[in-house]
Structures are given as structure tokens and as C-alpha cells.
Design a protein around this nucleic acid. Structure first.
Length: 1079
RNA sequence: GCGCGGUUAGCUCAGUGGUAGAGCAUCACCUUGACACGGUGGGGGUCGUAGGUUCAAUCCCUACACCGCGCACCA
């Protein structure tokens, strides 16, 4: 046993042990070690951005993973925790571009050009890319660093390419001109998931347009819709319902009737349109009304004159489309197919012109007209309103709040924009959807006997996945049910290039022929003609040049090409698609691409890592990426591995500040975890975060919690120091538990330990880590330190070296103290004698053989409990437990692979079995017994406090106990009460005026006769009596109620009866106390 | 609009159909032979509101209110 230093110094200890673990390969997973007896356990880290730095979110997330990994190792599993980083396309390119701009190196990315910028980013990645992984080490993360992966590693890139080609060949990837979410900030398309809706305060602008015939001549008030026009004769506050005979009822009764066509004095007819985006008016190509709307239906087929741009007030058709809502705005919708998804669809239905009036960066182009051209879109909006006002078209504007899609990354409103992109129709949707089994869906299956009781992570693959907390399964299911195509191309430079090469050729045999002499499989070519026809390479070769009306072909080469093949293609004039793939298009392969997957069935079947560790056991991530990442990984897992990628998904909460706000750089409310580690230690940070992060709840971060973690570590440290201070060198570490002399407190703490083991183990099985920490905290602090450790002083600190002689602490148990008994007699009687007969105080200076045996026993119990406790704690606080494991010498006698070298591989504690309990006589009855004793102590302390007897002052107590109190228990009572004397006497007759408190062991008196205010004491006891009587009344009322006694389960009835009895006992005790006071 | 969480002590949160809990904060006492990053004792809650089921509701059911989140959106 080496000596433990006086204070715990996390910094040096953490560095020391991390290095030890890493150098000894403790984190390294070896698939060859996996067997039936040693099952595999695996987690892949959610790869942080390669440019990222550690945040509290990472701390939470990775602490949980580390806890799981460490627990699995202690369970005897072969553990792989696979780390790595993500190239994070937009984010990384942004960071590097910004830095370069800041340094003045460039003004725009074009200054460098594609290759040079990508090279710069690689440089950056090599320089700073590992930061976050180093930071994870400081946290104690037990990742297998030998397997660190990056999503742009060459092998990983090959996986991405392979998957793209595979999907393309399956017909799931298509290129097309569709409406996408365009980010004018990052100048790229985004997927729907990257757009978040935000409420925006703006205005709804109403403007008038004139209705005209198709030839442009004015429609007069007397034309179709006569009645309607008559009814709305230009009066703006007209509230009369339009009437067109039978159609009238089609307009809902609650429809706002204040809008409708208006006729002015000259008989001209006007419609009013409401819009939030007047700057897009130049892009309008129609005006739509609902054909069932009687106000406007008659105008379908007519035209309006578009007000902007003023130099090009084109005639637009009025069309009928069901999409238009009667009740919204004026019931007239301007249709801008180029800049609105719904409008685009209307445009498709009605074959409308698509007028794109915007540049990619969100400024207006020349089609927007001379006034708006060149303006940024929001400035253009202002100007458009001014122009409408100038030409007298603007009717009014009213404040309006609507939801606008924002680019998550750039935090600017996205622009719906028509553009050519690559789209993926998701694969394996059904398998992915049905494998996630929620409680709700699982319950009926269990009832039918179809449930599985298989332990987590063991045995053959089962196609079932659980989410923790369960409710995310519903969210997942909902999303999977309405899944849309995924726009996978990004107009960025940093990322995986799309493995597609294209060339455009004239549609004649001569032009096409040479192409097919290249050394590529002919059906790697896919042709798209200028008429929209699609053909495979072999077909183009046969008759592609003869296809009707086709003037040219764009030929796509899509395959897993070698460098040579690529250069051949490029020499032949092919150019690679300039876009890169969405980052998530590589992340979704993470669980198997990191394990050396190649896509070649035979090779993969022989891959020991995949064989041993796929599917992974647990995934720990935030619910914010459930669609981005989790759902897509599940689909990818099924598509390419034929099995789910993980069996359990744990969704963490989001870390917020004390006020519940998200952590953000701009708010400055995001503490640096490394500062916290420096200040409190990594274990403190881990414990503090885990203790405040319940399953499924967001975490409100408060540094106080970390402080609590630090305090806890200190407590653990000091409790171990105490063990060392009381131990002596002649007692071996972890001596045998001695059933003969084990006292009631020993048995109690062993029982509590057993409960703690059960609770923590169960909490692990259900991913309730916060509950596990709460149990550990309670057990160690409130049970072990507060009670057990204090009771051991009654055994350990009498007579031994350094402790006061027994004579000083002689119990005033009176003349009934028995003579010393032999050990065997004591064992038979189950009564422990404290070995310090008051009749022979002089003999106490030398501890008796029996006394020594008791001390050895208690030390053995302490070691037993501490050894178990350290192991229970290790997953949460790995550093301090490792330090103490060695410092206390618990590693000493263990096999090297089971805790001899490191606590990391010590076995996870098991709850006691029946044999163990029988052998040591650990019966549950000791729980109540010890707790009665502790309650009596509490009562006595309370009494002291009532009479202002300071903690450091000794007092004399009298316990009028009807039952015998054995010397050990008496000694504990005396010690914990800090009593000068404790007299236990069943026949005690207190003098008048002695204060009393009822306890489970009998009335406890504090003889202070003459020193107390009798009246005040009477008042105190009377108040106590009243409370007791009230409780008795409550229980009696229940027990007197026949419907209660008849319907209630026997156990509840018994509980109530016992409760009544104990309250009644208390009543008696108080009454006798009052009697003593002379009341 | 649809869906999901939440509402319990001053704060952050556990919790159970049968006597309301923890940590922090607070008050008082204590530098007692591990620990002041500590010990001891105390104060503090009609468990969001209104109904219902039940012998019994903080817990189950219904409605409502407020807070948060997700999805879908109407210009």
C-alpha cells in the first residue's frame, strides 16, 4: 500500500494515467479477442468537425460514450470506440476562407482558385485538425486512437464514390433542374434539413392590378362577373357579399368579404393582390385564383397587367388553381415560378414561363428591371414598394409575421431557386423505418410472446433498434414516412467531388464513335439528349445519333474509376462535375466505412473488424441530427451491410446556460471545457455534467454542478485516506470478511452496497446515467461517509496507537456490562461485546485479541466496500478511481487482466448471491436495526441542538431502552452523539424537568435539570404531541373507513397499522416526557 | 394547424396510486483524531388551473393555461 498524498491533484494524475492507458494499449480493440465468452462492444464517435474545438456538448456526448465503453470493458467485453473527424464541407470551407480573408491573403475564393483553396484547407486540416481529438483525451475518452478516421481519408473517399456509383446504377440518383433551397450566403444548394424556419416580422403589401382582355384592352365593369362588380363598385370598405347566383354558397360564410374585384369610375376593373415579397413581381408570370371562388372565377382566362418592372408591364394570364386559399390575403395569388416552390408547381401545371430575376448571391438581375437590377434582395423589396406607390398600385401595407426558411449555416434566408442539382431517392427506406421499435409498437409484440429478452449487444444480429428516450422513435417514424428526395450536390470546393464526368457531343455517329473506344465499360455512359431522352452507352452507340430531333447528347460517365481511367476520360474531353457531395453523404457511411468496408462482398466478408464490431452496439448523439445523420446511417446500413448500423441510440439533451439559452459564441455563455478541467479536474467535469443530464432532458449548465463534482472527488479521496490512516501495516489489504465478529454497521453498509450495485447496474441497462450518479452519490456520501465511516471510529479508535485510551472513552453502561466472552460464544449468540469491560479500565491500554479481530474485520469491510465503490465509480470518474485503485493497493492481488494492471479491466461488481449472504449472516433485518440506531442518533443531535449544546461540547445522555442494547451499538451511539456518557437503563426514572425526545430505541433524555426553561420545553413537547396526534387521527380515519379496509391490499393495510402503532408509541413517549416536566 | 416534451422547495431537477425528495442557495452551531471542496441541526412546497375516475390522486383520465421543441405551412 503506497501512501496517498494529502490532496488530490487532478492535473498530474490525469496526465499520468492517460499516458499509461494509451501506452499499454488499454483502448485498443482487437477483433481476434472476440469470442462467445468475450462479446464485442462497439461505438463509433459522432465525428466532430475537423476544425472544431471541444464544447460542453461534446463533453456530455463523449462522456456518455466513455462511460459506456468503460463499463463494457469491465463487463469483460472487447470494446471498440472508434474516433474520427468529419470534413464538414460548408463549415470548414467557411472557416478557412474567412481566415484567409482576415489575413488579407484573398478577397474572394476565386483569387486562389479551386485547387489552391482546397490545398490551403488541407494544410489547415493537417495543422489544426487534430485539436478536438487531443481535447477529448483530456476528458479521459478511451477511444481506440489507432483507428482514427477522417471522412476524406483516401479509403473513406473510395467508399463514398462506390456508394454514389452504386446508387446511380440503381437509378436512385438523378440530375435534374428542380426547385432547391439556395443559400445566397454560401452560394450553394442545401437539403431541406439544412433549412430552419424562423418567424420574421415583415409586412403584407397589397397592390392593385388592372384586369384586361388577352389583347390588353380594359375589361369593363359590365363584363362577366357583373353582379360581383356591381356589388363592389369601387367602394373600398365594401363588406357586401358578392352574389353570383347559385355559386354564392361556394364562398365559405366566414370568408373575408372585404376583398374582391373593384370597378372604378371609369368602369375599369381591378384586383388586389397581397404579397410579402413585392420585389419578385417582375418574376411573376401569372395571377391565380381559386376556380371555386365566386369573386374571381369569372376572370379566369382574362389577364392582368403586371406593374413591375415599370418598363415591362407584361400581360399575365389569370389562371384558376385549387391551391389558392379563399381566405388568405385577398384570395388572389401572384405566381412566381422561379422563386417559390408552390408557385413553381402551379407554373408546371399551367406551363407558365419561369422568370429568374435573381443572381446566385441574392441580388437582382436585369430581368428584375432597371430599377431593381443589382440591388440586394431586401433593398430591392423596399424599392419595389416605392415604385408601386409611385405608380399608384400600392393599396396598403400591414405588419405581418410569417415563417421564413433560413440557412442553418450562414443564417440568412434561403432563396427558393430553380437549379440543376443531383438528387437521391433514399434507399432501404422501409427496412430502416420498420427496424426502429418504440415502446408503443413493442408492447403488443411482447404480449403476443414475440418479444426478445436478449441482452443488449449480445448474440446474433436482430433487426431491431431502440431509441433512448423512446419518444424520438415517433419523430423518426414520422420523418421516414414523409421522406423527400435528398439534394446531395453542393456548390462548394471542399468535399468529395461528384464522381461523374460529362461531355457534350453532337448527335451524329462520327462525333459519338470515338468516345466508346475508351477503356471503360460501355454502360458506364449514360446519355441525356437535348430533348430530354435518356439512353445507356450501348444504346447511344446503336441508334443514339439517329434519335428524332436530337441535336446533341450530354454523356455522363459514372463509375469507380482509377486515376488512369480518369485521365483517359479527361484527355477525351470529359470534365468532372464541379460540385461536391453534401457532407452527410459521406457521414452516413460512418459506421462501416470507418471499419474498412470496400463494397466488395468477398473482401468485406473476410474483414475481421467488420465481422467483430458491426453492427455497433450503441450510438450516442444529439436529437438535432436525427434526420441529418441517424436516419441516413440506418438506411445506409441496410443498403450496403444488410443490417442496421447500431442497436441502440441514446439521444442526449442540448446543453444550455442557466437561463435556458443555447450555448453560443456570440452570447459568450459557453465556457471552455478545458478551462473547467484545469480548474476542477476532468473527473469533476464528467461527474458534474452527468449528474445534471437526465435522459431526454436538456441540460442547464451551471458551474456549481462541476464544483459539486470536484467536491465529490475530494470526498472520495479523503475517505480513502481515512482508510489508510486507520489501517496498520500488520493488516493485509482486503483482509477476509469475518462473519463471526461482523457488527451491525458492517452488515448494514454491505447491504447498502448491494443495493447500490443493483441500482447502478440496472440504471446502466436503461441508460439512466444520471440515476446511476445519484445512487453512487447517495451511497458513498450519505451512507458510507456520513454513517458507516463514523461508526467504524467506535471500533478502530479505541486503545490503538494514537487513539485515546479506552479508559477515557469508557462507556457508562453501568454495572450490567458483562464479562468478556469468548469469540465462539459471541458468535453463537450473535451479540458483539466491545471487549472493554468497564470494570477493568487499566487493561484497555492493550487491545485484546478479540478487539484486534474486530478491527481487522471492520478494515476488511471498508476495503471490500471501497474496492467495489471504486469499480462502480470508474466509468464516471476514471482518473481518480485509477489513482486510488493503485494508491490503496486494490490492484495488488488481482490477475493482471482483471484489475491487476488497471482498474479499467477490473470486473464490474455483482450483487451478492444467497450463499454470500448466508455465509456472512447479512440479513435484511440489519437494515432496520441500523437505521433505528441512526435515527436515534439524529434525535439525540436534534435534542442537543434544541438546547444549544454546541457540537464540540460533550453531553450526558440517558436512553430508556426497553430492549437490550449491545455494547458495540451503545459505543456507536455514544460516539455519534458526542456524549460524555450514555447510560442505558430500562428502569430509568428521570428527575423532574429533564428534556426528552422519543426515538425508535426508546426515550432519550438529556439531563439538564435546572438549566432549562421548563415552560418552553413543555411547549415544544406539546407541539410535538399535537403533530403526532394529528397523524394518528389521519391514519385512524383511514383504518376506520370500511371501504378502505375492505378494498385495500393486505400489505397496504399492514403498513397503515404499523404506522399507527409507531405514532402511538411516539405519543406515549411524548406523554411520559411531559409527565417528567410536571405537566 | 398537427405532434412531442415540460409545469413539484428561492434555483436546477428526481419521484411514486397509500407519510412529498436531492443538490445548490439560505439560517444557526461547530476549525470534533479523512474531508471547511467539511460536519451537525433547522426553515422552506395546498406538486400549473379546473373537472373526472378511485376507499385514496402530485401520480391515472379530460379540458384549459403557460413555457420549450419538432413537423407542416397561406402568397
Amino acid at each position: 500500500m503506497s501512501d496517498i498524498p494529502k490532496t488530490y491533484e487532478p492535473q498530474s494524475v490525469e496526465a499520468k494515467w492517460y499516458e499509461f492507458w494509451e501506452q499499454n494499449g488499454c483502448f485498443t480493440a482487437d477483433p481476434d479477442r472476440v469470442s462467445d465468452k468475450r462479446p464485442a462492444y462497439s461505438i463509433v464517435i459522432p465525428p466532430p468537425n475537423v476544425t472544431g474545438v471541444l464544447t460542453l456538448g461534446h463533453v456530455l456526448n463523449n462522456t456518455i460514450q466513455d462511460i459506456l465503453a468503460r463499463k463494457a470493458r469491465m463487463d469483460g467485453k472487447e470494446v471498440l470506440w472508434l474516433p474520427g473527424t468529419d470534413h464538414a464541407g460548408i463549415a470548414t470551407q467557411n472557416v478557412v476562407e474567412k481566415t484567409l480573408k482576415k489575413e488579407g491573403a484573398i478577397k474572394h475564393r476565386d483569387d486562389l482558385g479551386r485547387e489552391a483553396l482546397v490545398a490551403k484547407i488541407w494544410e489547415w486540416k493537417e495543422k489544426y485538425g487534430g485539436i478536438i481529438l487531443k481535447q477529448l483525451r483530456a476528458l479521459g475518452a478511451s477511444c481506440d486512437w489507432t483507428r482514427t478516421r477522417f471522412t476524406m481519408d483516401p479509403e473513406y473517399s473510395r467508399c463514398v464514390q462506390k456508394v454514389f456509383v452504386d446508387l446511380y446504377k440503381k437509378g436512385l440518383i438523378n440530375r435534374g433542374k428542380r426547385m432547391v433551397n439556395w443559400c445566397p450566403g454560401s452560394l450553394t444548394a442545401l437539403s431541406d434539413e439544412e433549412v430552419t424556419m424562423k418567424e420574421q416580422k415583415g409586412f403584407l403589401y397589397y397592390f392593385r392590378v388592372q384586369v384586361v382582355e388577352q389583347d390588353g384592352t380594359a375589361v369593363k365593369g359590365g363584363a362577366p362577373g357583373k353582379a360581383a362588380l356591381a356589388a363592389s363598385s369601387g367602394n373600398t370598405d365594401n363588406a357586401t357579399m358578392p352574389t353570383i347566383g347559385a355559386v354564392e354558397t361556394a364562398l365559405p360564410a366566414d370568408a373575408p368579404a372585404q376583398f374582391g374585384p373593384e370597378t372604378d369610375e371609369q368602369g375599369r376593373v381591378w384586383l388586389t393582390i397581397a404579397t410579402t415579397r413585392p420585389e419578385t413581381i417582375p418574376g411573376d408570370s401569372a395571377v391565380a385564383v381559386n376556380p371555386k371562388d365566386p369573386r374571381y372565377a369569372p376572370f379566369i382566362g382574362k389577364c392582368i397587367r403586371r406593374p413591375l418592372p415599370v418598363e415591362n408591364q407584361a400581360l399575365l394570364p389569370i389562371i384558376g388553381d385549387e391551391h389558392v386559399d379563399f381566405q388568405f390575403g385577398t384570395g388572389v395569388l401572384k405566381v412566381t415560378p422561379a422563386h417559390d416552390k408552390a408557385d413553381f408547381e402551379i407554373g408546371q401545371r399551367h406551363k407558365l414561363e419561369v422568370i429568374d430575376i435573381m443572381n446566385p448571391d441574392g441580388t437582382m438581375n436585369e430581368l428584375a428591371g432597371r430599377d431593381l437590377a443589382g440591388l440586394e434582395r431586401f433593398k430591392a423589396r423596399k424599392l419595389a414598394v416605392e415604385k408601386l406607390t409611385e405608380i399608384g398600385a400600392l393599396v396598403k401595407e400591414e405588419p405581418y409575421t410569417n415563417n421564413v426558411g433560413f440557412s442553418e449555416r450562414a443564417d440568412v434566408p434561403v432563396e427558393p431557386r430553380l437549379s440543376e442539382q443531383w438528387f437521391l431517392k433514399y434507399p432501404s427506406v422501409e427496412a430502416a423505418r420498420s427496424c426502429v421499435v418504440s415502446e408503443e409498437r413493442r408492447a403488443p409484440a411482447l404480449r403476443e410472446g414475440g418479444g426478445d429478452n436478449e441482452p443488449r449487444g449480445a448474440g446474433a444480429p436482430r433487426s431491431e433498434m431502440r431509441f433512448y428516450p423512446d419518444r424520438w422513435a415517433k419523430v423518426y417514424d414520422h420523418w421516414m414516412g414523409g421522406i423527400q428526395d435528398w439534394c446531395i450536390s453542393r456548390q462548394l470546393w471542399w468535399g468529395h467531388r461528384i464522381p461523374v464526368w460529362t461531355i457534350t457531343l453532337a448527335a451524329d455517329a462520327k462525333s459519338l464513335e470515338p468516345l466508346f473506344n475508351l477503356d471503360l465499360p460501355i454502360d458506364d455512359y449514360v446519355g441525356l439528349s437535348d430533348t430530354g431522352a435518356k439512353m445507356l452507352g450501348s444504346e447511344i452507340l446503336r441508334f443514339g445519333h439517329k434519335a428524332a430531333g436530337v441535336r446533341e447528347w450530354t454523356v455522363f460517365a459514372v463509375g469507380n474509376y482509377s486515376h488512369e481511367q480518369i485521365s483517359t476520360l479527361e484527355k477525351a474531353g470529359f470534365t468532372q462535375d464541379p460540385d461536391v457531395l453534401d457532407t452527410w453523404f459521406s457521414s452516413w457511411l460512418w459506421p462501416f466505412a470507418t471499419m474498412g468496408w470496400t463494397g466488395d462482398k468477398d473482401t468485406d466478408a473476410k474483414n475481421p473488424t467488420l465481422k467483430a464490431f458491426y453492427p455497433t452496439t450503441d450510438l450516442v448523439t444529439g436529437p438535432d441530427i436525427i434526420f441529418f445523420w441517424v436516419a441516413r446511417m440506418i438506411m445506409a446500413g441496410y443498403e450496403w451491410m444488410g443490417d442496421l448500423p447500431f442497436r441502440n441510440v441514446y439521444f442526449t439533451g442540448i446543453i444550455r446556460d442557466k437561463q435556458g439559452r443555447k450555448m453560443s459564441k456570440s452570447l459568450g455563455n459557453s465556457p471552455d471545457p478545458l478551462d473547467l478541467i484545469a480548474k476542477y479536474g476532468a473527473d469533476a467535469l464528467r461527474f458534474g455534467v452527468m449528474r445534471s443530464a437526465p435522459l431526454g432532458q436538456d441540460v442547464l449548465f451551471d458551474e456549481k454542478n462541476i464544483e459539486l463534482g470536484r467536491n465529490f472527488c475530494t470526498k472520495l479521496w479523503n475517505a480513502c485516506r481515512f482508510r489508510q490512516m486507520v489501517g496498520s501495516s500488520d493488516i493485509p489489504i482486503e483482509g477476509e470478511l469475518d462473519p463471526v465478529v461482523m457488527n451491525t454497521d458492517d452488515k448494514w453498509i454491505l447491504l447498502r452496497l448491494n443495493t447500490a450495485i443493483q441500482e447502478v447496474t440496472q440504471a446502466f441497462a436503461e441508460y439512466r446515467f444520471t440515476d446511476a450518479t445519484a445512487t453512487l452519490y447517495r451511497f458513498f456520501w450519505n451512507e458510507y461517509c456520513d454513517w458507516y465511516l463514523e461508526t467504524t471510529k467506535a471500533v478502530l479508535m479505541r486503545g490503538s496507537t494514537g487513539a485515546p485510551p479506552v479508559a477515557d472513552r469508557a462507556l457508562a453502561v453501568g454495572s450490567e456490562a458483562s464479562e468478556t466472552s469468548t469469540v465462539s460464544e459471541l458468535a453463537d449468540a450473535q451479540v458483539v461485546e466491545d471487549g472493554a469491560p468497564s470494570t477493568a479500565p487499566e487493561a484497555a491500554a492493550l487491545p485484546t485479541e478479540y478487539e484486534l479481530r474486530c478491527r481487522r474485520s471492520t478494515l476488511a469491510v471498508m476495503d471490500f466496500v471501497l474496492g467495489h465503490t471504486l469499480r462502480l465509480f470508474h466509468p464516471f470518474v476514471p482518473f481518480i478511481t485509477e489513482e486510488l485503485w493503485h494508491g490503496m493497493g486494490f490492484n495488488g492481488e488481482l490477475p493482471r487482466t482483471q484489475g491487476g494492471d488497471t482498474i479499467m479491466f477490473a470486473r464490474w461488481p455483482k450483487a451478492f448471491d444467497g450463499e454470500f449472504r448466508d455465509h456472512y449472516g447479512i440479513d435484511d433485518c440489519y437494515l432496520q436495526f441500523a437505521e433505528n440506531k441512526y435515527e436515534t442518533v439524529r434525535c439525540g443531535r436534534n435534542l442537543r441542538s434544541q438546547f444549544n449544546i454546541q457540537s464540540n461540547r460533550k453531553a450526558n445522555f440517558m436512553l430508556k431502552a426497553p430492549d437490550e442494547v449491545i455494547p458495540h451499538d451503545a459505543a456507536v451511539l455514544k460516539l455519534l452523539l458526542n456524549a460524555e456518557t450514555l447510560t442505558i437503563d430500562a428502569a430509568y426514572a428521570p428527575a423532574k424537568g429533564v428534556p426528552m425526545i422519543p426515538t425508535p430505541l426508546g426515550e432519550l433524555y438529556l439531563p439538564l435539570a435546572g438549566l432549562i426553561d421548563v415552560e418552553a420545553e413543555q411547549a415544544r413537547l406539546t407541539k410535538e404531541l399535537e403533530k403526532t396526534l394529528a397523524e394518528i387521527e389521519k391514519v385512524k380515519a383511514k383504518l376506520g373507513n370500511p371501504s378502505f379496509t375492505h378494498k385495500v391490499p393486505a400489505e397496504v393495510l399492514r403498513e397503515h397499522e404499523e404506522r399507527l402503532a409507531s405514532w402511538q408509541q411516539r405519543e406515549q413517549q411524548i406523554r411520559s416526557g411531559l409527565a417528567v416536566l410536571g405537566g
